[in-house]
């Protein structure tokens, strides 16, 4: 009796209740995203139609109170910070994952993994505060003014390292044991096995992690706002301050009125588009990886 009531093909009353509450919850979760995108579209509509996307690249500068809305330096700053942090975090994350899985003694490996998980749980404002009172003064002593693209890249690296490391670690752990045993049986050194067997097999999973990290780096706001200096300019080197799209929205939204507000929503739309792109690439890669493993 007990078994049959758990049968998925029998629709008991409890099952139906459960099924419908799940359906309602799923619709709520899904429609929230649609609502948010719809809302951002509605708020940025005046900017899209009256100001136009072209002026974002052709206006003389970002002086919203004087109706000049050039976003190019901000877009470039956002991309530089995100890509710079990926360049640092990706090798670090992959190496940490390899160390954790193949080289560290089990106890140390486990401990190390927990540390990285903890790093993922630190609120971004704490990273920002630490950056502001520790990292920025250090950079200022080395090469003033301190708040800079470099500070942003370093803080972002710390924040996306766990994402990249944990995803790389789990996809390395998924490499079939038979591959590893065969490589060992062939007498490959540990490094040769990692380089020629483990990494090629798990590369799609690792790439997924990198794209998710990139999406997070693009969307990060609070920490970036506190360490990047927020000056609207094209940086000529690592020590120049920059402003990112997220910081721009956070700094000005509360004070923005009219078309300024609408342009900020438009930049939010742009940001959302970029993040959706990266997350979809990551998802597509993940499907490919699942398919490859299934094969």
């Amino acid at each position: 009796m007990i078994l049959s009531s758990n049968n998925i093909s029998s629709h008991s009353k409890t099952d139906l209740h459960f099924l419908w509450s799940l359906r309602v919850l799923a619709v709520v979760a899904g429609s929230l995203l649609v609502l948010i995108i719809g809302f951002i579209l509605r708020e940025s509509w005046p900017a899209l139609t009256h100001i136009g996307v072209a002026r974002v690249f052709t206006d003389p500068g970002w002086f919203p109170t004087e109706h000049s809305y050039q976003l190019t330096p901000i877009i470039v700053g956002t991309m530089l910070a995100a890509c710079g942090s990926i360049l640092l975090a990706a090798p670090l994350g992959i190496v940490s994952a390899i160390f954790c899985h193949f080289y560290a003694p089990p106890l140390l490996g486990q401990w190390y993994r927990h540390m990285i998980e903890l790093l993922a749980g630190i609120p971004s404002v704490v990273f920002g505060f630490w950056g502001l009172v520790v990292l920025v003064p250090l950079i200022a002593a080395w090469h003033p003014p301190g708040p800079s693209l470099l500070a942003g890249i370093l803080i972002l690296t710390l924040m996306i390292l766990p994402t990249i490391m944990l995803i790389a670690h789990s996809s390395i752990a998924q490499v079939p044991a038979a591959y590893i045993h065969s490589a060992t049986a062939l007498g490959l050194s540990r490094w040769a096995m990692i380089w020629h067997v483990v990494l090629p097999v798990s590369q799609i999973g690792v790439l997924t992690g990198i794209f998710l990290g990139l999406a997070r780096a693009l969307g990060e706001t609070m920490a970036i706002l506190m360490v990047c200096g927020n000056v609207v300019q094209l940086p000529s080197h690592m020590f120049d301050p920059i402003r990112t799209l997220t910081a721009n929205i956070a700094l000005e939204m509360a004070y923005a009125l009219g078309s300024h507000r609408s342009v900020l929503f438009m930049s939010g739309l742009l940001l959302m588009g970029l993040v959706i792109c990266f997350v979809s690439v990551a998802e597509a890669l993940r499907h490919k990886a699942n398919y490859a493993v299934a094969k």
């Binding site: 500068g61 502001l132 200022a140 003033p144 003014p145 301190g146 927020n230 301050p241 402003r243 700094l251």
Partner: peptide
């Protein structure tokens, strides 16, 4: 605001004070 040549742009007072306190 166009004339100003800033190195750091801050939001609130506390952020400004922390920035100056961290840079001689």
């Amino acid at each position: 605001n166009r004339d100003i040549h800033a190195h750091v742009v801050i939001g609130d007072n506390e952020q400004g004070i922390k920035t100056v306190a961290g840079n001689p």
